[in-house]
Amino acid sequence: MSGFRIPTPRPPDEALAGAIQAKIDAKTKPLGALGQLEALARQVALIQQTLTPTLRQPHVLVFAADHGIAAEGVSAYPADVTHQMVRNFAAGGAAINVFCRLHGLTLRVVDAGVRGSFADVPAVLNQKIAEGTRNFRHAPAMTAAECRQALALGAALVDDIHRAGCNVVGFGEMGIGNTSSAAVLLHLLGGVPLASCVGRGTGLDEAGLARKQAVLAAAVAAHPTVATVDGTDALTVLATFGGFEIAQLCGALLRAAELGMVLLIDGFIGSAALLVAWRLAPAVLPYCVFSHESAEGGHPHLLRVLGVQPLLRLDLRLGEGTGSALVYPLVQAAVAFFTEMASFESAGVSPAEADQ
C-alpha cells in the first residue's frame, strides 16, 4: 500500500449543462414543477456526461470497525455490539438489509477493523487493518501507514464493484464509538465548536452526554499540534481521531468520484468521512447525493460546512447506510423522468406561452 495514490476527482465537465437543462425544461410540465428531482436529474446527467443517464448495479458498502475511545464510556452500548451487528448484517437481519432488499441494492459488508474474527462468515469481506483503533484520548487512533492502508483498501473495493458494472454506490458504517470520531473530525476540519458537534449517538442520557463531551474535549487537548490544524492536513486529523471504517469510507468516496460514479451519502458518520475527503479533494462534492439530515446533533452543522441540502428529513440516526438506501428510489425517479417523460413536442402538447 506504500505506493497508494490518493484519488483526485475532477469536477464534472459543465459543457452539457445547457443541453441537460433544455431537455428538462422541454418535458410536459411547468418549468421547475418537479423541484429537487430536476436538480437531481441534472446532477446525475452531468456526472455521467450524457443526456441518457442510467443507473447500473447499485451497491451499498457498509464498513465496520471498533474504536478505542469506546473504552471511555462514550456510547450507551458496549463495544461488542459492533461485532454482533456485523453478524446481523451478514445474516440479513438489520434495517440496511431490509431496505437494500426492498430497493434492489447489492449490500457488501466490510470488516475494516472489528475486534474478533468473521472467518466463519463468508459474507463479510475481510479488510481488517487491526482489532480496532487505539484510544485517541491517549494516543493517535492509527498510524499514518494504517491510515493510508485504510484509504487504499476502500478505494480498491470501489474499483472492484465498478469493474463489475456498478455506477451508483451508497455508503454506510458500523462502529460503537464512531460518533465520537465524527464529532472531533467536524470540530477540527469544519471549525464548529466541539459542544455543537457532540450528540447522543446510540442514545446517551444527559449524564452520558456530558461525559462524552468532557472525554472528547480532553482528547482534543491531548493532541495540541493536531488541534491547531486549520484543515489543510486532513490526513493527520483522520489518523489521530478517525476510525478504520471512516478511513476506508473516505478512500472509497474519493475513488468513486474519480471514476464518475453517483455517490449516495448517509448521515453523520458518512458525512464526516466525506468532510475528510472534501478537504483532500474538493471536487468530490458534485458527485454526492445527500440523503437526509440526521437527528444526531452535529449533522446539521456538518451539512452547513459542506454547503449542501439533503433530500430527506426523517429524524434518522441509525447509520448502516440506511439513508443511502432510502434515497435511491428518488434517484431512480429523477433519472426515469429525465429519460422517459415526453416532451411538449413529442406529446403534441402546447407549451406555456412566453410573456409578450
Results as ranks from 00 to 15, higher is better:
Ala19Thr: 14
Val124Pro: 00
Ala141Trp: 02
Trp278Gly: 00
Leu31Pro: 06
His162Ser: 14
Asn126Thr: 05
Phe244Ala: 01
Ile269Phe: 08
Val262Arg: 00
Ser291Asn: 09
Leu188Met: 10
Val215Gly: 04
Ala130Leu: 07
Ala91Val: 05
Leu249Pro: 01
Val349Pro: 01
Leu194Ala: 04
Pro53Trp: 01
Asp13Gln: 08
Pro53Thr: 03
Thr133Ser: 14
Asp25Trp: 03
Phe171Met: 12
Leu314Ile: 14
Ile129Thr: 11
Gly32Glu: 08
Glu296Leu: 06
Phe99Leu: 15
Arg115Ser: 13
Val110Gly: 00
Ala210Met: 11
Arg148Thr: 11
Ala79Met: 07
Leu274Tyr: 02
Thr228Asn: 06
Ala295Gln: 10
Asn167Leu: 02
Ala247Tyr: 03
Ala71Ser: 15
Asp66Arg: 04
Pro286Ser: 13
Ala41Met: 09
Thr8Asp: 13
Glu38Ile: 06
Arg108Asn: 07
Pro329Glu: 12
Ala272Asn: 07
Ala217Lys: 02
Phe89Glu: 02
Ala325Ile: 10
Phe118Thr: 07
Thr143Ala: 12
Leu186Ala: 09
Ala295Pro: 00
Leu280Arg: 03
Asp205Tyr: 09
Gly92Tyr: 07
Pro282Asn: 10
Gly172Arg: 00
Arg42Met: 13
Ser271Arg: 02
Asn126His: 15
Thr28Asp: 07
Ala155Leu: 10
Ser180Asn: 08
Ala156Arg: 14
Glu296Gln: 07
Leu303Glu: 09
Leu254Val: 10
Asp266Tyr: 12
Arg10Asp: 09
Gly231His: 13
Leu280Asn: 00
Gly35Gln: 12
Gly132Gln: 01
Gly104Gln: 03
Leu31Lys: 15
Gly231Asn: 07
Val60Trp: 01
Ala195Tyr: 09
Leu259Asn: 05
Cys100Ile: 04
Glu72Arg: 15
Leu280Lys: 02
His299Lys: 06
